[in-house]
């Protein structure tokens, strides 16, 4: 996480660390005693599930404390539609080898139902042990980092990603994605946060609105973080884990248009007479 701060132990008790061959590679979110949600791109086909371990209840990655638990992975379910970075379906379900015991430091986050809608501008929080800047690792003892990020609509996010877009690197924000972050940059998720939670508060509960998926560098201007929209996969999750009940998210706040955040939109609309091309 770039531009964030250290969390307090137990503040995000659903955050897990996914370790491959002894090294932290991704984040994840605990959604029940035996299941964790993460990103599909954290589980390349050639990696065997026995090489993964899930650490729960951790705060500093470099200091293992009694309240933290570790589990091996019994099953990895990667969504069939995931192909490569930026494609749809960047979501994975992990079954733990044994259930965990909930505690002050290990608790599940709520899964939003399929029809859930979180308003533009809602202040959510992204957490993780990832880089603090492109290719700059979090320093030992690596405390969990947190960052409040406002949600940005898909339309506005597409508009932002078209500013100074490189033809060789087309980016499009798909139906199953949501953006969050800052137009001016400097505060964002980064490598190593992938798979971790975008936690959004509604009605006194935290919901897993998104899963850290991709972005252009970290904290670059006009390049907010892009997250897999968890509610798009409520039925896929329920199909594989029948006991997991997605929750209806109460509609508390109207979603306000946020297209004004995208400078290039203003340029286009302010000069139609000169026939500016899109």
């Amino acid at each position: 996480v770039t531009g964030g701060s250290s969390a307090v132990p137990g503040q995000w008790p659903w955050q897990v660390s996914i370790v491959y061959d002894g090294t932290h590679v991704c984040g994840g979110s605990l959604v029940s005693k035996k299941w964790v949600l993460s990103a599909a791109h954290c589980f390349p086909r050639e990696h065997h599930k026995d090489m993964y371990e899930v650490r729960l209840g951790a705060h500093q990655l470099d200091s293992f404390v009694p309240k933290a638990e570790a589990r091996s992975v019994a099953q990895v379910l990667v969504h069939i539609s995931y192909q490569q970075e930026g494609s749809q379906g960047d979501i994975a379900l992990l079954q733990l080898s044994n259930p965990v015991t909930f505690s002050r430091y290990i608790r599940p986050i709520c899964l939003p139902a399929a029809n859930a809608s979180f308003p533009n501008g809602l202040q959510c929080t992204v957490t993780g042990w990832g880089h603090v800047a492109p290719s700059v690792s979090l320093q030992a003892p690596r405390p969990l980092q947190q960052l409040e990020v406002p949600l940005i609509s898909r339309e506005t996010c597409n508009c932002l990603y078209n500013i100074d877009a490189k033809p060789s690197e087309p980016h499009s924000i798909q139906q199953d994605m949501v953006c969050a972050g800052y137009v001016k940059g400097g505060k964002d998720a980064c490598q190593g946060d992938s798979g971790g939670p975008l936690s959004c508060p509604v009605g006194g509960l935290w919901y897993l609105a998104g899963i850290v998926s991709w972005g252009d560098a970290c904290g670059a201007p006009n390049r907010p973080g892009v997250y897999t929209l968890t509610s798009s996969y409520a039925s896929w999750i329920h199909y594989h884990v029948a006991e997991l009940e997605p929750r209806v998210v109460p509609q508390t706040q109207e979603s306000q248009p946020d297209i004004h955040l995208c400078r290039s939109h203003l340029a286009l609309s302010s000069a139609p007479a000169r026939g500016l091309l899109g």
């Binding site: 307090v8 008790p13 005693k33 608790r107 986050i109 509960l205 935290w206 929750r247």
Partner: peptide
């Protein structure tokens, strides 16, 4: 359901 009923709550206030 008991487990899920406890979802989304962090005991440590900010």
């Amino acid at each position: 359901a008991e487990a899920e009923a406890l979802c989304g709550v962090a005991s440590q206030a900010r």
